[in-house]
Amino acid sequence: MMQKILVTGATGNVGQEVVHLLLLQNCHVCAGVRNPLKAKQILGSNVQCIPFDFTNPDTFTKAFKEVDKLFLVRPPALANVRQQIAPALNAAKLAGVEHIVFLSLLGAERNSFVPHSKIERYIDQLGIPATFLRCSFFMQNLNTTHREDIKTRGELLMPTGNGKTSFIDVRDIAAVAVRTLIEDGHQSRAYTLTGKEALTYYDVADIFTSVLGKPIRYNPSLLKFVQQTHSSGLPIDFIFVMVAIYTTARLGLAGLITSDTEQLLNRSPITIRQYIEDYAECWL
C-alpha cells in the first residue's frame, strides 16, 4: 500500500519543490497548509491541501490521520519550539507517524541557540525515526527575503563580514528530501547539505554584477540590517534568528563543504552562478 506523506511548509521555497517532485514519483502526498484555497492557487488544483497550523491544535488530528511520513519545515516566524512546534510533534507521534524528514540548518547540532537545534533534540526525545537535512544558506533567499534590496538598491545587506558560505539551491535540497522520504535506509541519519563552493558575499555580489550587467554591492552592516528588516515589518524574534544564522557565517562556520549533496544526487550541486542565471528576471 502506498505510504501517505504530509508536507508542511508546502507553499515555501523548499516545500513547493518537494511536493512537485513527490507528485512526479506518483506518491500519495498531502500539503499541510493554513489556507487550503490559497495554497491550491500556488501548488495547483491537483494537490491535496489539508488544513494545518502549528499554532492551532484543532488541526492536528485530521492533518496527521493515516500519515506515514512527515516532511517538517519550521515556519520562520515560530521561534518558541516548546510552545509552537512541540505540540504538533506530539500529535504526529500519537498518530503513528513512522518517519520525519526535518529541514534543519547547517551546524544545528553545535548551535543550541537556533530553533532547529531544539527541534532536532525534541524529535530525538520523542523517539520518532528521523532524517535531519542540515542545510547551508538557501540561494533562493536571495530572490525572496533579499529580493528588493538587490533589485531596487543594488545591495546585498547581510551582517556576515568576510565569512564564506557554502550556498545550496533549494532544488537540490528538495531532490535530497524526496530521496530520503521514498527510499529506505535514511532513518536516524543526518546529512549536511552544501554546495560545492564556499563564497563570501563580496564574491556573490561580483557574480550578481557579472550576470545581471548592473552593479551589485555587498553591505555587511549589522545595524542597518536590523533597522531595515525591522522597518519592513519582520517580527523581532525572526530577526534575532536571522542574525544568529548570519553570525555563524561571520565567524567562519558556514563555509563547510561536504560531499553529501553530490553523493545523494549522483551529480554536482547547482552553482550560485547557475542559480543567478536561472532567476535573473527576479532582480532586473
Rank of each mutant, 00 (worst) to 15 (best):
T59K: 07
H28P: 03
T61G: 07
P76A: 13
N141L: 11
I207G: 02
F167R: 02
A88W: 08
C49K: 00
K69N: 02
D172C: 00
D184V: 09
L103V: 03
K93S: 11
S188D: 15
R110A: 15
S188H: 15
A86D: 15
V19G: 01
L24Y: 08
T258R: 07
L21K: 13
G161W: 03
L256T: 14
V81K: 10
C135L: 00
P76T: 09
F167I: 02
F132L: 04
F238P: 00
D124Y: 05
R134A: 12
L105W: 15
V101N: 03
V170Y: 00
T144L: 09
G233K: 10
G233Q: 11
G15P: 02
R273T: 15
N111Y: 14
R110T: 15
V7K: 00
K40H: 07
F132W: 06
F167K: 01
A95S: 15
E281P: 11
R82S: 15
S232H: 13
Q41E: 05
N13K: 08
V47M: 06
G154T: 11
D278F: 13
F138H: 03
D203F: 02
R217H: 14
L37W: 05
V243G: 01
H20I: 03
N219G: 10
T11E: 02
F52Q: 04
K4L: 08
I123N: 07
T261L: 01
L142C: 12
L22K: 00
T145K: 12
K214V: 07
R121Y: 06
A77N: 14
S232M: 14
R134M: 13
L265Y: 08
A244L: 05
F52V: 04
F208P: 02
H146E: 09
K118I: 15
T165V: 15
S166R: 07
D169A: 09
L106Q: 09
Q25K: 15
G15I: 02
P269C: 04
P87M: 14
Q140S: 13
N56Q: 10
L23V: 06
Y279L: 10
V241H: 07
F225R: 02
N13V: 09
G163P: 04
G9C: 08
R250Q: 13
L23N: 11
I42C: 00
T61I: 08
S166E: 07
